[in-house]
Amino acid sequence: MAAETTALGWWGVLLAIVAGTMRGGTPFLFVSLGECLTEKSGKINLGLEGTLLTGAMTAYAISYLTGSPWLGVLMAGLAGLMLGAIHGWLSQQPRVNDVAVGIAMIVFGSGIAFFLGKPFIQPSAPQLPTINLSNAAMPPALQAALQISPLFLLGLGIAPLMSWFFRSTRWGLYIRAVGDSPDAARAMGVSIFKVRLLSVMIGSFLAGIGGASLSLYYPGVWTERISSGQGLMAVALVIFAGWKPVQCLWASLLFGGAQALGPALQSVGIQEGYYLFNAAPYILTLLIMILTCSPKRTLSGVPGALGTDN
């Protein structure tokens, strides 16, 4: 593959970035949609890194044990749901800080994932089938780029669906009310506790599926170093996307692409600054936050109750 990319020269770099964008963007897409749902209800879940790892391990283990990768995806989501239940319940206890719970959940979730996943590092599990949009006449690099995961398409569908859900459904309104103005939600007779618990749980379900896309699609293995911080990045991504699900899609693609930049340049022999290119998404997010934030007004789209005690 690397040799082919070299033969294609700069087109290969572009192609590798496009391919990497879809492959690397898929986990970003799921965790950011999950985090978006969670934050819309007024809570932050920093623990999605643990959820992502647990999801990746569960998907791989179930796929290996049952031979069905799709069952693995479902169980990854359910594993995420359970971790989300812990986070959603604990972070709503009085005087308990949701950021701190998130960090404890990173430790706990990654601990569970590494503990239970130890026996599954060696064996190879059946991978999710991919949808092939290429034909045999195309150069191999292009063929590799056109292997599209059904999970990516699923995420592609969820983003506008979630946007519609927030805008036009009763439950979407409840979540926005709880996140923006808990007092108004209480006056509407909505249970803040239940809405937030469910939002965190379903958000974690999505993050679990994001983990499944890591272990069953790309890179398609289970190791303890499979996540490069995508779960932690979710929080930054959602800010970057202004708490809008469709923007999460674009942000995930951008971040996936930025992540692919380093390896793609390396494949044409540009070794210098490989790690600095890896830092590109983080520097980009920071710059955007510096440019868009201002002490005079709050960010547009930020849920009102985010980071407050009620």
Binding site: I86, L90, Q93, V96, V101, A104, F108, S110, G111, F115
Partner: peptide, 19 residues
């Protein structure tokens, strides 16, 4: 990874105890 599980459990409970 057992120590991670242990650490995670202890801290989840310690955080809960704040309430």
């Amino acid at each position: 990874a057992t120590v991670l599980v242990f650490q995670g459990l202890v801290f989840l409970v310690v955080l809960y105890s704040d309430s």
